[in-house]
Amino acid sequence: MLDIDFRSRKPIYEQLVDQIKEMIVSGVLKGGEQLPSVRVLAQQLTVNPNTIQKAYRELERIGYIYSIQGKGNFVSEKIEASNQEELKMVKENLQKLAQQALFLGMQSDELLQIMEEIIKDHQGGKRDD
């Protein structure tokens, strides 16, 4: 499931946050689903439990998960878009990628088409729920 690269420059807790985020965004982890306990994950990944705790706290802060005292951590049903920080970062990445695509010769209608498809998929997925 999660895969930590100990050779990476990226701090371990950031890797955890990013990977769990991705799993939530892609729907591998569904709303309401319980995340493995700190203890279990620490043992599975051989990662310091304090680091895992920190990653969970960060995910909670940015709204991807919520915790219930004594029960554990759960995936949020609906991720609040109110987190401006997070949104700003995504926007920057999007801009960077779009620039790169245009530089490499992608046509602007092709770029728009991709965006439209993503939007359509996202809305379609919502109707299915």
């Binding site: 700190v38 203890r39 620490a42 043992q43 051989t46 990662v47 310091n48 439990p49």
Partner: peptide, 9 residues
Amino acid sequence: KNIIIQDVA
């Protein structure tokens, strides 16, 4: 390391 981490957790 794994055993150490288990004991810490």
